[in-house]
Simulated scan of single mutants.
Amino acid sequence: MDILTEALASMRTGQPASVRTNGRAPWGLRLPPVAGAGFHVVLHGTCWLVPLGDAPHLEPVPLNPGDVVFLRDGRGHILADQPSTPPQVPEAERFEEGSPIGSVTLGGDGPETSLLCGNYHLDQGRPHPLVRQLPELIHLPTRHGRHPELSAAVQLLSTELENPRIGSVGIVPTLIDSLLLYILRAWLDDQPAAVARGWAAALSDAAVAPALSAIHADPSATWTVESLAGRSGLSRAAFARRFSTLVGEPPMAYLTRWRMTTAARLLRETDAPLTAVAARTGYGSEFAFAKAFKREFGVAPGGYRRGTRAA
């Protein structure tokens, strides 16, 4: 099972919002926090990202052509030609007819920088632990030969935005969606095996990864610590310790979490009856499922479904 894809899909609450930002020095753009995760791709030129808020541990980051930045919690920040440039209030975003991306132009008459800026709408109220364990800010600088898929996606985006053609309206949103997976894959690949911890290690761990794949492949199965340990080649106690250390919670706690996450997604995205949702998430009766769901979400499954449809 592709656990990374499933973890992100479980948090998605909408399509990404994207804006093409063109700044000529001196320029500065203050970006407020967003309900999700923020991202920037430097299409050409250079600039700085200056974090805002209570984050003294985050330093200004210089960005070069092809660089990609991912902000896990959609933290507010400034983009500018220099860290000292005061941020401006830009013109309203403009959307040309048929374009999936808005545009903002600001600054003076100096060197130009062009970026693709935006955010992925993710439910941060119940983040998957894989996402929660990511750094607050991921900076993937351009490096020759590193992350060729990510570099190719950035180049394709740049080409479509610079020279839109027939099909661009469909291609650009798909590339932006794919970009999120390329960013996180590149970051995971960058973690040295010798020092990787948490989910960065769990996804490739010979004992834990098969158990995670089994849970994601069939959350309705009657999994036990013993049956999951049997897939790992470890004793029950050794497996439970290793799983808890890497994943951040015991096997049965994660199983319940994933069952409830799967149920919430089915309630949001399908019209499946509650009996079917219960069966697909390992509950023998609608009553048992409803009780577990309310304990986890604070609302009955039917109320949750109505609330998400009304939002």
Rank of each mutant, 00 (worst) to 15 (best):
R309H: 12
C117W: 09
G145D: 04
D81Y: 07
A92Y: 01
L161R: 04
A193G: 14
V68A: 02
F239S: 06
V225F: 00
L63K: 02
A202K: 00
G230R: 05
T174C: 12
T308S: 10
H139V: 10
L180R: 15
P273Y: 01
R280E: 04
A7T: 07
V208K: 09
A17L: 13
Q155R: 15
P33C: 02
H144R: 15
P273V: 04
D109F: 10
P60R: 02
T105Y: 14
G108I: 01
F39T: 00
P251W: 02
S178W: 14
G282H: 00
L71D: 07
T46Y: 00
T105L: 13
R242L: 05
S114E: 14
P56I: 03
T222R: 14
L188D: 11
E162G: 05
L63G: 07
V104E: 07
L179M: 12
L156V: 08
L157W: 04
F287A: 14
G118K: 07
I176D: 03
L115H: 00
S10K: 06
H216L: 14
A207S: 09
P33S: 12
L266C: 02
V225H: 11
R30Y: 11
A288Y: 03
Q191H: 07
A202G: 03
T261D: 06
S244M: 04
G14F: 06
A17M: 11
P32G: 09
V225G: 15
N163K: 08
P111S: 14
I183M: 15
N64L: 10
L29M: 05
P219C: 08
D54C: 03
F287C: 08
F243D: 13
V61K: 01
S204V: 14
R185N: 12
A264R: 09
A152L: 13
L134Q: 12
L184Y: 13
L184F: 12
F70D: 00
Y283R: 03
R94P: 03
A292N: 00
P60H: 00
F39E: 04
G98L: 05
L130M: 15
V277I: 12
G230H: 09
E112L: 13
H144V: 14
A193T: 10
A206S: 15
A292T: 02
L4F: 06
Y254K: 01
A9V: 04
V299D: 09
L203V: 15
P100A: 05
P135I: 01
T159V: 10
H40Y: 11
F95L: 08
A300T: 12
R24H: 13
A272C: 07
A211L: 09
P56T: 00
N119D: 09
G167W: 08
R265E: 08
G53V: 02
W223M: 11
A240R: 09
A196F: 01
L115I: 11
E91A: 14
M11A: 04
R268T: 10
Y304T: 05
L134Y: 12
P129M: 11
L122R: 08
A288K: 06
A202V: 02
A237K: 10
P83N: 01
